[in-house]
Design a binder for these strands. Sequence first.
DNA 1: GTCAATTACGTTCTCCGTAAGGATG
DNA 2: CATCCTTACGGAGAACGTAATTGAC
Lengths: 308, 308
Amino acid sequence: MIDISSRVLRAMIALDELRNFSLAAERCHVTQSALSQMVRKLEDDVGLQLVDRDRRHVQFTPEGLRFLATARRVMQELDEIHIDLKDHASARRGRVNIAALPSLAAHWLPPIVAAYKKAFPGIELGLFDCTPLRALELVRLRQADFAITADGPGRPGLEARLLFRENFVFVCHRSHPLAEKRRLALADLNGCHYIRLIRSGSIAQHLESALRNLALRDTGLEVEQVATVAGLVANNLGVSVVPEMAACYFDPKQVAIVELDATELYRPVYAVTSVGKTLSKAAQEFVTLLESSEAPQSAARTPGKAKK
Amino acid sequence: MIDISSRVLRAMIALDELRNFSLAAERCHVTQSALSQMVRKLEDDVGLQLVDRDRRHVQFTPEGLRFLATARRVMQELDEIHIDLKDHASARRGRVNIAALPSLAAHWLPPIVAAYKKAFPGIELGLFDCTPLRALELVRLRQADFAITADGPGRPGLEARLLFRENFVFVCHRSHPLAEKRRLALADLNGCHYIRLIRSGSIAQHLESALRNLALRDTGLEVEQVATVAGLVANNLGVSVVPEMAACYFDPKQVAIVELDATELYRPVYAVTSVGKTLSKAAQEFVTLLESSEAPQSAARTPGKAKK
DNA sequence: GTCAATTACGTTCTCCGTAAGGATG
DNA sequence: CATCCTTACGGAGAACGTAATTGAC
């Protein structure tokens, strides 16, 4: 199998353009002797004369011209991939695919995305809002560079970095007895009519153990979307517990949002990556930005103050 | 400027296909260590990690995959040009452009072309029938690989190889006094009404010096095509002297063709090439065939016997 | 412990530069 | 005689192979 280096291709192209060994050698930053040897070796390798040197003029043979055409195409390809890789290395170009839980994608992520797009305008962003399991699957399938989710640690092949811990808040109708409290303990929820979120979601999973020991009354309502909970609570059909970030779904005129004094009750938010898969520079930058971003403040009590 | 050799491209492709350093190294006929170093050096050169090796699995990074796509395109180009050049080197493929005088192109060349096409079916042939000057110009312009013409020696930048010498014959109407002779000396033409060919043609040029000393009567006719001479002679408007090969233009029923006993009167036929321009293998083979071909026999006295 | 890739190191060999050679205009 | 390419030769460095090392399963 023949071996051809891009140096030789460049030399041949220079030789064609300058029609002069000395000048071509100069352009290639080698001596004229070296270029002469390069051409000779190439000709030996392919078994054909490619250039006619009649001591005064440099002329390519028909075969040499065919070779040149290929050489130019190849060099264009190599130059392009080189620039392309440099761009990717410096995060000037590229694409980052992110799998995130819907609530995070909708409320915490947008300002970070905005900051990222400003800092790295050449990077395309793909944002998948999906269930926790799907998010991890996308990372494993390499369809997402990383996931932003409440799950992750302990999963084989995945690596999770804690970004922040999100507190839960209690939501009820303003007419509810607990509506006027500043803070509640979990025990205060005993006896309440509770609206559940479906189990497959991240929220229910983190609430389950904490709520199991409470004497909650079942409303018979189990819904999928937090927005539905908001509607139900607004119509005084029950109470619920949701992450701080979901508070904005609730209409403050009808719904009271009360902080929970329960340190054991929180939802961790991780950046989850595949072990052994180096992130692209662009994705690395995004994760760095995530890590430097603050945990969200309660959107309920301190509206319009998303960051410290 | 980065230097990438095809060996490295092959290695990366093998690594992608086999997902295993040891196997890929084997395919590339190097040790696994060498391949590891090759990949590392490539990554250093481009400044990016292209392959994730987690000790057990080989996975390409997004940038690595981009690189691979280019690598495959480039290798395809290089493999193709290699095959292409090998084919040209062995005259399996290619093209030969020939500039030849009309009379040679029409009468001497066809059987040679036929033999050549049989021996080298993959070679395309271009045949230009043109004036002597134009033939040499085409060679100089490299639009023709070589010329078959009566001119050539002494021209700067051109190289002429004598193929054969073609004799001239005397042509006249059957009613002409010289029609019954077996052989004529040049002096026998004195007093004849002579039909001239134009000076720019090869025939007139070779006749000029020999005929200058004869006392020919001018018919006032100077024509361009030998076929026209044939028509004029057939109508008894004069006599002429033409190369043996042109004899077939004349109608034997009306025109007598007489050999000339004049050793100094002949038209040399050369294969003319550009000095310092190596012929393609295909063209070389054609010239070889030309050189091994016999000079044409008189088509007049021995019809149907083109070769000895 | 085994397997697979990396690292270390010595050697080989390629490739380049210097300098001399040769041909051409 | 000057120019331009080729050839000869010697040295620097790259690349390869052997072998020891590391790390994962």
